[in-house]
Write a protein that binds this DNA or RNA. Structure first.
Lengths: 196, 196
DNA sequence: CACCACTATGTCAGTTCTTACATAGTTCAA
DNA sequence: TTGAACTATGTAAGAACTGACATAGTGGTG
C-alpha cells in the first residue's frame, strides 16, 4: 500500500499499452514529437520499470542484448492495463507551472531589449519549426480520422494539443518581439525618458 | 564555484526585484495569477533564500514576527540584480515538458468516453475561469500601456502569455469534448463496431 | 582501422522538491 | 470561547529526477 505509482509510471504504461518495448525504447518513444509530454532519462525509466514489475503491472521476456546484460522486453499486464484505464479518467492534480521563458519575461523589464529580442527570435524559430512538423503530421492524421478506441486516436488528440500550443507560443513570441521593437525605436513618441 | 543558482533562485530574485519581502510573502506572490509560472513551497523558498544569502545576492533585516523566530525581510543586493539581469537574456534551457492532462489524452483511447468527457468539461471550466480573470486584467493593463523598464511591463508580458495559453487550452478542451461526443453517439455512421 | 552513433542495461552521487511536522502570535466569525 | 484562517520560520524524511560513469556489441563513415 505504501507504493504509489508516480506519473512517470503511467507514462511508461501508456507506451507499453501500444507496443512491448525495452526500457531504452520507451525513453525513445517519449522523446518523439507526439509523445513528448513526460520525458525522462533512461535511468529513471529503469528504476520505475522495476517498481511497476514489483507491483505486477508489467512483465518481461529476455532476449540477447548488445551489452553485458540481457535485453528485457517489457509488456503491460492485465492488471497494468486496468490501473492505467482507471488513472486516465481521474482528474489530473493541479500542475506546478514551471516555465523558464515566462519567468524571464516577468523579469524582462530589467534587461537589455535588444538581447531580449534576440532571445525571443530564437524561441520563435524553435516554435515555428515544431509547428510546421505538427501541421504536416496533422494533415495526414485528419484524412485518416482515427476512431476512438484505437491508439491513433490518442496520437491525434495529443498532436492537436501540441499544435495549438505551438501556435499560441509562436504568436506570443511575435507579440513580445513587437513590443520590444517599440521600446527600441520610440520614433513617434518623444516623451520617453532618455536614461542611458 | 560549485554553487550554481537553480531556477527557483532567479524566481525569488525576480520577486525581490519588485519589492522587499519575507519568505512567506514570496511564496504568496508566486501563487498570484500574474506570477504563477514557478511556484514552490515555502520550505524550498527558505532553503534557496539561505543559498542566495550565502552567495551575497540577497540581504535581510529582521523585525518581530508572529512565531518563535524573528521575521526576516529580504531584499535583493546590487550583485543579485546584476546576476538576475544577466540570467534574463541567457537562452532558456530546453524544458522537460510535463503535462498530466496531455499524458492522459495520449492514453485516452483505452478509457470510457463519457468519463473522459466529464474530465475535460471540468478542465474546461477551470481554463474558462482563468481566461475571464486574465481578460479582465488585460483590459485595464492595455489602457495603461506600461513602458519597458518598469515592472508593470513584466506583468503585462507574462499576463499576455497566460491569456493566450488559457485560450489555446480551452479551445483544445472543447475540441476534445466534441471528438468524444462524436464517439458517444455515432448516429450518422452505422458501420461502428458495437462492442458493449 | 579508428571513431562515432546507436542499441541496451545498470549504478551512484547529488540536486530539487514535496509533505509533514513543530512553534506561535493575531484576527475574525460562529 | 473555540476554532479556523492567516502570518511567519524552520527541520527532516523521503520521493523524483539528472547526469556521469561503466560495459559492450553492431554498423557505418572517413
Amino acid at each position: 500500500m505504501s507504493s504509489t505509482i508516480p506519473t512517470l509510471g503511467f507514462a511508461i504504461l501508456s507506451v507499453l499499452a501500444r507496443a512491448d518495448s525495452t526500457g531504452y525504447e520507451i525513453a525513445g518513444r517519449m522523446r518523439n514529437p507526439v509523445a513528448r509530454f513526460w520525458t525522462a532519462s533512461h535511468s529513471q525509466i529503469h528504476t520505475d520499470l522495476r517498481r511497476l514489475l514489483a507491483a505486477g503491472l508489467v512483465g518481461y521476456t529476455t532476449a540477447p542484448g548488445p551489452g553485458p546484460q540481457e535485453k528485457k522486453i517489457y509488456s503491460i499486464t492485465g492488471e497494468g492495463l486496468e490501473a492505467l484505464r482507471e488513472w486516465v479518467t481521474e482528474p489530473p492534480r493541479p500542475q506546478p507551472e514551471r516555465d523558464e521563458l515566462v519567468l524571464k519575461t516577468y523579469a524582462a523589464w530589467l534587461a537589455d531589449p535588444a538581447a531580449l529580442s534576440e532571445m525571443f527570435r530564437t524561441a520563435l524559430r524553435g516554435h515555428e519549426k515544431r509547428l510546421a512538423e505538427y501541421e504536416a503530421a496533422w494533415a495526414s492524421m485528419e484524412k485518416e480520422a482515427p476512431a476512438f478506441g484505437t491508439p491513433r486516436f490518442g496520437n491525434m488528440a495529443a498532436l492537436r494539443c501540441g499544435l495549438t500550443y505551438e501556435r499560441h507560443r509562436a504568436d506570443w513570441c511575435r507579440w513580445m518581439i513587437d513590443q520590444l521593437s517599440r521600446s527600441l525605436k520610440p520614433s513617434c513618441d518623444a516623451s520617453y525618458p532618455s536614461e542611458e
